[in-house]
Design a binder for these strands. Structure first.
Lengths: 121, 121
DNA sequence: CTGCATCCAAAATGATACTG
DNA sequence: CAGTATCATTTTGGATGCAG
């Protein structure tokens, strides 16, 4: 399927992944399976409760993750990747791979630029 | 290569693509090859000069596109995808495909939910 | 334990005028 | 033609307190 600018759906996919914590949240759920809210919070250092809730809601809205509430006290809520959500895994892997290589690419590029600058001195 | 949360590079790739206009700009350059600033501006309806400049600078910074200035009056500046930048194409295609399917998925989901709601009446 | 509400700061985007 | 500069607006993220 060729992309035409008039009917580009890249942004639709991008929108799902964009958010400071979404990739990490998805990764933890993919790697560790079902997790409670508090487990996720511990798994993603630095995230606030508000942001975790927000990002989980976003992902739930798009049917990427599932939220299961146990009606008990104290509350218990479990999150997991949906079957459909797993279809994102290849893209996440591709981006991780590309990103890993990109870091190398940038380092190489900077090296060359530095050599160039030295020659100018 | 398996992604570990501690060494996730998805955000590095994501950062390149994120920006309201970047996917469209990349698509136009991939599809039409080298383009002048004004051609790009026409190709991306609604974008302002400022945003076009910003996003082009971002992409150039990451070595995804190349900027060639012709020192003449009036000025002429051409943009094109770098060889390295083309390595993003598979990811863009995958996201476009996923996004296209996601739109269908959401429509199906809404249909089901509506049926469910009708039953509740 | 889970999560909502409020208030605030920072970043991204947009409108507009100006320049070589 | 291809920008830059400035200011306004919108969006996103963060801190904190409260509640079932």
């Amino acid at each position: 399927m060729k992309i035409e600018p008039e009917s580009c759906r890249v942004d639709d996919a991008l929108g799902i992944l964009v958010g400071k914590w979404k990739p990490l949240i998805l990764l933890h759920l993919l790697k560790n399976g079902t997790q409670r809210f508090s487990e996720l919070k511990r798994s993603v250092p630095g995230i606030t409760q508000k942001m975790l809730t927000n990002q989980l809601r976003d992902l739930e809205e798009e049917d990427i993750i599932e939220r299961k509430v146990y009606p008990q006290v104290p509350p218990k809520v479990e999150y997991s990747i949906t079957e459909y959500g797993r279809s994102l895994e290849p893209i996440l892997n591709a981006m991780h791979e590309w990103g890993t290589n990109h870091i190398i690419h940038k380092r190489e590029k900077m090296k060359k630029e530095n050599v160039g600058n030295e020659r100018k001195l």
